[in-house]
Amino acid sequence: MRLTIHKKTNINRIIKKATFISLFLLMIFVLVASNEISHNQLGRTAQPLNVCLAPDSLPCKTSSQEIISKPFFPDQKLNNQQRFLSAIAIKLPTIPQPATYEYTLLRTYGAVFVNPDVGIKLPQKDILANEQETQDFQRTLTMGHVDKTNDCYLQKSAADALNKAQIKQEIPLKSGYGYGDCTRTFNTNLRFWNKYANNQVLAKVQEGKETKILGLVAPPGTSQHLWGLAIDLRVSNQEQRKSLNQNGWFQTVENDVPHWTYVGLTEENLPLFGFKKQAIRGITYWITPL
């Protein structure tokens, strides 16, 4: 009697799964009719579903995850700028118009928006208005501690990648302390700006008349440090650079020597996203193509 019940349970389970797959395939065929999906695309989508008909099958879950997590690479037929913009459009809802203040900031600090790491979080715009807006965003982040520091925290994926880089090479913070080198508050960003510039300089930046200052200090609310995806380091040899690059960290802000950005790509993939390799006084920067 128990065996019969068990068999019925398995049969019911198989019927339910078969019904679900049938409905799912029907939805795909509807999409084919309405959106002109090619037969090849349909075959690649539907093929992994066959294994789901087997009882207690895990492969169908694995296949679904593989489809979802497939890394994005821009169409290489596009030019550098188009490849970069197509990549950041995934994470940045609104792309600023050329010749605007926002576009200037995106050109200088926008490298992080191509980061494929699903563990990081990016703001919905490239300027945070004030301390409250910055805190609201930072409260949504999952943070991780940078090893061998007192109070240096980054988004966890960025911290993990940096800690991995430091396994082979010890890489000290620029200041040696931590707070100002890592994730910053809006007020800290503002304090650094006021140290090197003022409202008159900011007005020139906003009008597009001044850009060199951006390689020294970020205007209030625009620093990658606010997002927990940048750090200031004292890098003195090629082995340190190599270790950082191998773990997704690159220098992306021209002339800002201590500043490192967590891009999350390999060096060989950076050109695929449109980045331009530029050597300045012996330092290799990867610059956005805007």
Rank of each mutant, 00 (worst) to 15 (best):
K17W: 01
I14Q: 09
F29V: 10
P55M: 12
L23F: 10
K17G: 04
L53T: 11
P48A: 06
K16H: 06
A46W: 07
F24G: 00
I28R: 00
S34G: 00
H39A: 08
N40M: 06
D56C: 01
Q47F: 15
R44L: 15
A33G: 05
S38P: 02
T45Q: 12
M27W: 04
V30A: 04
S57V: 02
T45H: 12
M27A: 15
D56P: 00
L25W: 05
S38L: 07
S38C: 11
R13V: 02
N12S: 03
N50A: 14
N50I: 15
I21C: 04
Q41D: 14
L58P: 08
C60S: 13
N35G: 01
S57L: 11
Q47C: 13
A46G: 09
F20L: 07
C60L: 05
L42G: 02
L31N: 04
M27E: 04
A46S: 14
T19N: 05
S38V: 09
L53M: 14
I15T: 05
P48F: 08
L26G: 04
L49G: 01
A33H: 10
N12V: 00
V51S: 13
G43L: 15
P59D: 03
S34D: 08
I28W: 02
F20A: 09
I15P: 01
C52F: 13
L58R: 11
M27P: 00
A46Q: 05
N50K: 08
